Simulated scan of single mutants.
Amino acid sequence: MSHEILVGLNVVDDLTYEDYRTAMKPMLADYQGRFGYDFKVSEVLISEGNTDINRVFTLNFTNKEKMDGFFSDPKYLLVKEKFFVKSVGSATIISSYEK
């Protein structure tokens, strides 16, 4: 059974965010992770939080331990600091579930 998260972001710098995605994808694959769906959205009708969302996607891993390892990997954290922090105004984990 795989583990998946549904994420909403407020991307404020598309070019730097694409640099982030390019830099993190090989590491994502190392942890047996992949993007399932990826949407740019223009309007959010209902939100439980008080954050803007203009990007929604799923990340799928073979299991939760792989996901946890990916997000705590020191190499990933460097890429996150270099690109993600500068390009994303807010991040919301909408859901996390076994698939």
Rank of each mutant, 00 (worst) to 15 (best):
residue 1 M to T: 14
residue 2 S to L: 10
residue 3 H to G: 10
residue 5 I to W: 04
residue 6 L to G: 08
residue 7 V to N: 10
residue 8 G to K: 06
residue 8 G to Q: 08
residue 10 N to W: 11
residue 11 V to K: 07
residue 13 D to T: 07
residue 13 D to H: 09
residue 14 D to E: 15
residue 14 D to F: 08
residue 16 T to F: 01
residue 17 Y to C: 11
residue 19 D to A: 15
residue 21 R to S: 09
residue 23 A to Y: 04
residue 24 M to G: 03
residue 24 M to L: 13
residue 25 K to N: 13
residue 26 P to H: 07
residue 29 A to I: 10
residue 29 A to N: 08
residue 30 D to W: 00
residue 30 D to L: 08
residue 30 D to G: 06
residue 32 Q to W: 03
residue 33 G to V: 05
residue 34 R to A: 10
residue 34 R to C: 05
residue 35 F to K: 03
residue 36 G to N: 10
residue 36 G to K: 11
residue 37 Y to I: 05
residue 38 D to Q: 11
residue 38 D to W: 13
residue 39 F to G: 09
residue 40 K to Q: 11
residue 41 V to L: 04
residue 44 V to H: 02
residue 44 V to L: 07
residue 46 I to F: 11
residue 49 G to T: 14
residue 49 G to K: 04
residue 50 N to M: 02
residue 54 N to D: 03
residue 54 N to P: 07
residue 56 V to M: 10
residue 56 V to K: 01
residue 59 L to G: 01
residue 59 L to S: 01
residue 61 F to A: 00
residue 62 T to S: 08
residue 62 T to F: 00
residue 63 N to I: 01
residue 63 N to Q: 03
residue 64 K to E: 11
residue 65 E to H: 05
residue 66 K to W: 04
residue 66 K to E: 13
residue 68 D to E: 14
residue 68 D to G: 01
residue 68 D to F: 02
residue 70 F to A: 02
residue 71 F to N: 05
residue 71 F to K: 02
residue 71 F to G: 02
residue 71 F to H: 07
residue 72 S to H: 08
residue 73 D to E: 05
residue 73 D to F: 04
residue 73 D to I: 03
residue 74 P to S: 09
residue 75 K to M: 03
residue 75 K to A: 12
residue 76 Y to F: 15
residue 77 L to E: 09
residue 77 L to N: 12
residue 81 E to M: 03
residue 81 E to P: 04
residue 82 K to L: 10
residue 82 K to T: 14
residue 84 F to Y: 15
residue 85 V to Y: 02
residue 85 V to S: 12
residue 85 V to Q: 12
residue 86 K to F: 04
residue 86 K to S: 15
residue 86 K to I: 01
residue 87 S to Q: 04
residue 87 S to C: 07
residue 88 V to Q: 08
residue 88 V to Y: 05
residue 89 G to L: 06
residue 89 G to Y: 08
residue 89 G to V: 07
residue 90 S to L: 06
residue 91 A to T: 14
residue 91 A to L: 14
residue 91 A to H: 07
residue 92 T to P: 07
residue 94 I to W: 05
residue 94 I to M: 15
residue 95 S to Q: 13
residue 95 S to M: 10
residue 96 S to W: 05
residue 98 E to V: 13
residue 98 E to W: 05
residue 99 K to S: 15
residue 99 K to I: 13
residue 99 K to T: 15
